[in-house]
């Protein structure tokens, strides 16, 4: 009998478009660790030790194939001078945007990673996780793309207007955001992250027209990803990806997160041999699944995208909500072991 692969081996083999021992499972927990440790979400995010402990306990409990230091998107905005608003049962929100008028773009300073407590928190978490899991489990770092970060930096509506009507200020902002993103991503790689999730929801044609993306965010992504010293997978944070798969493949990304609204089998066919597919369990509906439904959803996803490797089972957004019962997560974990062993019938 062949030896069971480690999560890192399993992930590497599938990302090489070959079949590992079974389909890897990325359960991307952020706030869920607080529940596991019996802490409030705010308290949980007060010490890197808590986050690292939460991640390793959840890894042991649910048998996933990765850990992540990612806490919440607002931590990047905090580095830019924004505020974080906590709640008891959900991810923290970014508060008032640090860029309040388009003119602020000229003067806003690019934060240095080594001077930003919220980013240093992430790096320390990676180092703690690395000590725990070594090279056996991939540590997935995370950045908001330079192109999508302004949604939080200045508010979504104001940013859309900038994108259409202020090309010079848009370019200035992208230059600053690219510097920040590259430094932040590489700092995570240097601390021990195996790969970076590049969150770029604005790349989806659900968000902006494809021709506008090709003139803007696509170019930004190509420039940025080429400077990151590690593998980068793009996540559109539950927005549809299928119509821009070719474009994403051209950015240098090596993987892509898939929406619950996408046809997973069609995405897999189009990605084959070029992009590893991550997805696409519906994390919102998951809250009310029964264990039997969870198993059926896992089986369906594996049937659609598992054969041939190049597939990691995950949720469609990159975060397991607080409200999802443990019984569902245990059922997902059991189902991937039952139905995801290669060769898949």
């Amino acid at each position: 009998m062949t030896r069971e692969m480690t999560p890192a081996e399993r992930t590497a083999v599938t990302m090489g478009f070959e079949e590992p021992d079974r389909v890897p499972l990325f359960l991307l927990f952020t706030i869920y660790g607080a529940k596991e440790l019996g802490l409030s979400i705010k308290e949980y995010f007060s010490k890197p030790e808590y986050v690292a402990r939460g991640q390793t306990r959840l890894l042991a409990k649910f048998g996933g194939d990765c850990v992540t230091p990612f806490c919440h998107s607002a931590s990047e905005i905090e580095a830019w001078g924004g505020e974080v608003i906590f709640r008891d049962d959900g991810p923290p929100n970014a508060g008032r945007p640090p860029i309040r008028r388009p003119e602020d773009i000229e003067s806003i300073a690019v934060p240095a990673v080594e001077e930003s407590p919220s980013l240093l928190f992430g790096l320390e978490t990676i180092e703690l996780l690395k000590r725990e899991v070594g090279d056996d489990v991939p540590i997935v770092g995370s950045v908001l793309s330079p192109f999508s970060l302004p949604i939080l930096q200045m508010g979504f509506g104001a940013y859309i207007e900038l994108l259409y009507e202020e090309p010079d200020l848009f370019r200035t902002l992208m230059a600053k955001n690219e510097e920040f993103c590259v430094e932040w991503a590489n700092a995570q790689i240097d601390a021990g992250a195996a790969a970076i999730s590049y969150a770029d929801p604005l790349a989806s044609p659900d968000m902006i027209p494809r021709d506008l993306y090709l003139r803007t965010g696509h170019i930004v992504a190509g420039r940025t990803i080429s400077r990151i010293r590690g593998g980068v997978a793009t996540s559109l944070a539950s927005a549809r990806v299928l119509p821009v798969l070719e474009d994403l493949a051209g950015t240098g990304s090596i993987g892509v997160g898939v929406s619950a609204f996408d046809d997973l089998a069609a995405v897999k066919r189009q990605c084959a041999g070029r992009l590893t597919v991550l997805g696409n369990l519906n994390a919102i509906e998951m809250r009310r699944w029964t264990p039997a439904q969870a198993e059926a959803e896992v089986k369906k996803a594996i049937a659609a995208a598992g054969p041939g490797g190049g597939f990691i089972l995950s949720d469609n957004h990159g975060e397991i909500p607080w409200q999802v019962p443990e019984s569902v997560l245990l059922a997902i974990s059991a189902a991937v072991r039952k139905w995801g062993e290669y060769p898949i019938e």
Partner: peptide, 17 residues
């Protein structure tokens, strides 16, 4: 059109504005 994937949210927003 947006619901059917034929328009983008940015166009819905700007049209409304």
């Amino acid at each position: 059109d947006w619901e059917q994937g034929q328009a983008a949210l940015s166009q819905v927003y700007m049209s409304g504005r």
